Simulated assay, not measured.
Amino acid sequence: MDLVALADFNLVARHGGFGKAARATGRPKATLSRRVTELEAALQLRLFERGARDLKLTEEGRALHERTTALLTEIDETAAAIASGAEKPRGRLRISAPLLLSQTAMGKIAAGFALKYPEVRLEITTEDRAVDMIEEGYDLVIRVNPEPDETLVGRAFLHDRLVVAASPDLPRPVGDLPAPGVVRGGGGSQTWKVTKAEQTAIIRIEPVLVLSSLIMVRDAARAGVGAASLPISLVSHDLADGALVHWGDVEGSEIALWALYPSRRLLSPRVSAFLNFLKHAFPGGTPDELAAYIAR
Rank of each mutant, 00 (worst) to 15 (best):
G188A: 08
V131I: 13
A295K: 12
A295F: 10
D8G: 02
V194L: 14
G248P: 05
H280V: 08
R222Y: 04
A79M: 15
L290F: 06
L244V: 02
S213A: 09
F274R: 02
S212K: 12
L290Q: 03
K196Q: 14
G224R: 03
P146G: 07
S189Q: 14
T25E: 05
D54G: 11
S102D: 05
T37W: 02
P146C: 05
A7N: 13
L234G: 03
L45K: 15
A97L: 06
V271N: 01
L158F: 01
A259T: 07
E123C: 09
E254G: 15
T69L: 14
P180D: 06
M133L: 15
E136C: 07
W258E: 08
G242F: 14
Q199A: 14
G186H: 13
R14Y: 15
L239V: 04
G175M: 04
A41N: 12
L162F: 13
K20P: 06
L101W: 00
T69R: 14
A228L: 09
G91R: 04
G181E: 01
D8V: 00
M133T: 11
A83P: 09
G175F: 02
R265T: 05
R50F: 07
F18M: 12
D160R: 00
L278W: 00
A240V: 08
F274A: 04
R50G: 06
P173W: 00
K196W: 04
L57T: 04
L93M: 07
P269I: 03
A110H: 11
S212I: 07
R129Q: 08
L72V: 13
K20D: 12
L43E: 00
T200Q: 14
N10V: 11
A30F: 10
A197P: 01
R204F: 07
L162P: 01
A24V: 05
R90A: 15
L170E: 03
V235I: 15
P168C: 09
V153Y: 01
D149P: 03
P262H: 06
E74G: 12
R14H: 15
G187D: 15
A281Y: 02
E127K: 12
A223D: 13
E289H: 02
P287A: 04
P231V: 01
T58H: 07
A5D: 15
Q44H: 12
L266K: 06
R23D: 08
L140Y: 01
L99P: 04
L57P: 06
V12I: 11
P262A: 07
L100Y: 00
Q190T: 07
K279G: 08
T125N: 11
A291I: 03
R155P: 00
L6Q: 01
F18W: 15
E289S: 05
V120D: 07
G186W: 10
A41W: 03
V153N: 04
S236R: 14
I134T: 05
Q190M: 11
K88H: 14
D238V: 02
V174N: 03
